[in-house]
Every structure is written in structure tokens, then in C-alpha cells.
């Protein structure tokens, strides 16, 4: 059997066989009950999140939908200062989906869970008729614990705070757009997909003065900063020359008419902290492999409220707004 059939979602023996052969051993599931029973959550606060993954293509330079679905949820939990512990996963498979691809994706999810120190503890599989899905969709949900004293929220942003980014921007979005359109780059541009929880742990251990963190996924750095500015009511000023844009991303963006500030990332975070701890925080982050290119890119000001301003290389200023929809390629 090399393809998913409708019967694999029937709830009958075919489904049980699929789970027993492929899912359970990969994720070391001890029981096949519908609910997992877990231990070790005795904290004051827990964080819960869910996210669905529909990326196309499902395999792309530097990653695939499987690890993305684990890291995405791990990162969402991490951004509120939680240590992710357990993940559940729901698959929606399209009839005819190659089982070899499913195996690759499961292996990648298992490896990702191990790397991120989380356990995949419960799951669900549905199969839809051919033509009613795009191969595979994955939903993951996660649970994590937050130390009592940790408080990460845009409401803590204050004028004078510093803005840092943990690595170069644009790699994930460009790798996807490239793969989708048959463009190859030399050297190749790889997705930055990565779990940020260990970097966040290092950061939280270093200081309690991190006011907010977020991973700039869809909508990119610009959208995340705009969200911070709107939610806090302050102004965020960033400097163009300080923002790390890899040459390959810059070139591809010029070619495609995109702005790297709006291109998706999957393995970096933006943080805003008190100015007095920013230098030591950057030092700590640079010691972690995922933060070795951490940069200070700007600061928070009182006015104009709710705006993001960018100081350009030649000394001008421009407003950074959210996009109304997707970035579209230009035509000339």
C-alpha cells in the first residue's frame, strides 16, 4: 500500500493499522486512547495554543510541513514565556496522498519534537476525498508552563525600551516563494524553521526585564512591530542599516518586488526589553546557536502613538504600515 485511501480515516481496522504502524511508534505513544494523560503541570500558569499548517509546497528548502507544525506551536508557546511540554496533532489527509511522504513528515515531526524537548501525546487522523484537500494539512495544539514571575505582554512596553531581533530576516518566506515558483538561488536560501524555546529559556534566565517577545511569521518583522506599537500605544523606531537582511534575501526581494520587512520567518524572534539589560541580554542570546546573529535594531519612543518609523540609510524617515493582504509580485 503506497497511498492514503478513504478507508484510512474510517475508524476501522485500516485506520488502526495506519496508527499502529506509522504514528504510534514515531511518537512513542503508550496508549491509543483518544486523550493523553500527562504529568508535571503543577505551575501557577499554563499556556495553551493551537495552529494549523497548510504550507505549499509541503517540502521546501530547509524544512517541511512536519517540523514546521511542531516548531510553530513550540514557538507560539515560547513567545509568552512558557516552556512547551506537550503537543497534540491532527492530520487531514487527502485521499491518494503518498504514504512515503507521510512517513517522511512523521519522521521529521518526531525529530523536531525531540529537538524541541516536547512530547507528541495525542493525535487524530481524517481522510478527505481527492480534490477536497491539498495533500496534507496539519493542526497542532500545545501546552506549556509559565514561571510565576514571568510576565510577557505588549502592555509592559515603555518608552526608552530597546528592540532586538535574534537573527536575519526573510529566509523562510523566500525559500517558500522560490520553491513555489521554481526559482533556485545560489547559494540556496533555506527556511530558518527552528524551535525557539531554548533561546527563550536562556533569555528569561538572564533577565526579568523582557517586556514582550514575538516570532515574526506571516506579515514579517514589519507586522510584528506594528502590532507592538498599536497594542502599547507607543512609537517604535527602527534603523534600516541595523536590520539584518541576508544578501540572498535582499536580491530575491528585489527580483520579486517584495519588501523583506514583510517576508515570513519561522526561526527568529523580536524582543523588547528595558534599556539597562539590553547589552547583557544580547550577549546571552549570541551564545545560543539560534541567537548568534542577534542585533539591536531600534527603540521605543513616546510619540507618535501607535506608529512604526524606519530611519533609512540616507537619513530619511518612513512609516512602516501593515499590509492590506499578501505581498504581490510587481510586474516591472
Amino acid at each position: 500500500m503506497d497511498r492514503i485511501l478513504l478507508g484510512h480515516g474510517s475508524g476501522g481496522t485500516m485506520m488502526h493499522q495506519l496508527i499502529k504502524e506509522h504514528f504510534a511508534p514515531r511518537f512513542e505513544m503508550k496508549s491509543l486512547n483518544d486523550s493523553a494523560v500527562v504529568e508535571g503541570i503543577n505551575h501557577g500558569k499554563i499556556a495553551l495554543t493551537t495552529d494549523s499548517y497548510v504550507v505549499s509546497p509541503i517540502f521546501f528548502p530547509g524544512g517541511d510541513i512536519g517540523e514546521l507544525s511542531v516548531y510553530g506551536t513550540v514557538n507560539d508557546l515560547s513567545m509568552v514565556g512558557a516552556m512547551p511540554l506537550y503537543i497534540t496533532v491532527g492530520f487531514i489527509l487527502e485521499e491518494g496522498f503518498p504514504i512515503d511522504d507521510l512517513k517522511k513528515i512523521l519522521a521529521s515531526m518526531a525529530a523536531a519534537a525531540e529537538k524541541a524537548h516536547v512530547k507528541i501525546v495525542a493525535g487524530d487522523t481524517k481522510v478527505v476525498n481527492k480534490g477536497k484537500g491539498d495533500g496534507i494539512f496539519i493542526n497542532t495544539a500545545g501546552i506549556g508552563v509559565i514561571e510565576k514571575e514571568t510576565d510577557i505582554s505588549p502592555s509592559r512596553i515603555k518608552p526608552g525600551d530597546k528592540v532586538i531581533v535574534s537573527g536575519p530576516i526573510g529566509n523562510h518566506g523566500i525559500s517558500i516563494i522560490g520553491e513555489r515558483n521554481g526559482l533556485t538561488f545560489e547559494p540556496p536560501i533555506l527556511s530558518d524553521t527552528a524551535p525557539l524555546n531554548m533561546l527563550v529559556r536562556d533569555m528569561l534566565n538572564a533577565t526579568g526585564k523582557i517586556h514582550v517577545m514575538r516570532d515574526p511569521t506571516r506579515g514579517g518583522l514589519a507586522t510584528t512591530l506594528k502590532e507592538f506599537a498599536t497594542d502599547s500605544g507607543y512609537c517604535i523606531v527602527i534603523e534600516e542599516d541595523l536590520i539584518p537582511v541576508p544578501p540572498g534575501v535582499r536580491g530575491a526581494c528585489q527580483l520579486l518586488g517584495l519588501d523583506p520587512l514583510y517576508v515570513a520567518n519561522e526561526g527568529i524572534l523580536v524582543a523588547i526589553s528595558s534599556p539597562d539589560v539590553v547589552d547583557s541580554l544580547i550577549k546571552v542570546m549570541r551564545k545560543n546557536p539560534l541567537g548568534k546573529e542577534t542585533k539591536l535594531i531600534g527603540e521605543v519612543q513616546e510619540e507618535p502613538s501607535g506608529m512604526v518609523l524606519l530611519k533609512t540609510s540616507i537619513g530619511g524617515t518612513r512609516i512602516v504600515e501593515m499590509l492590506s493582504g499578501d505581498q504581490l509580485p510587481r510586474i516591472c
Partner: peptide, 30 residues
């Protein structure tokens, strides 16, 4: 149009004397 956008993105108007005004022309094919 690419120039219009670049002029804004680079903040050219902020750095040149105000007696120089920049007008946008018909060069956006869309």
C-alpha cells in the same frame, strides 16, 4: 512607479532641500 516607491522608502524628501519638489509620473503599468 518604482522610483516613486524608492523615494518614499529611502526618505529622499527628508534630506533634499524643500525647494526641490518631486512629482510622480505615469510610469506604473498597472
Amino acid at each position: 512607479g518604482t522610483h516613486t516607491v524608492a523615494i518614499f522608502k529611502q526618505g529622499i524628501r527628508d534630506v533634499i532641500p524643500k525647494e526641490i519638489s518631486l512629482l510622480s509620473g505615469p510610469g506604473c503599468p498597472v
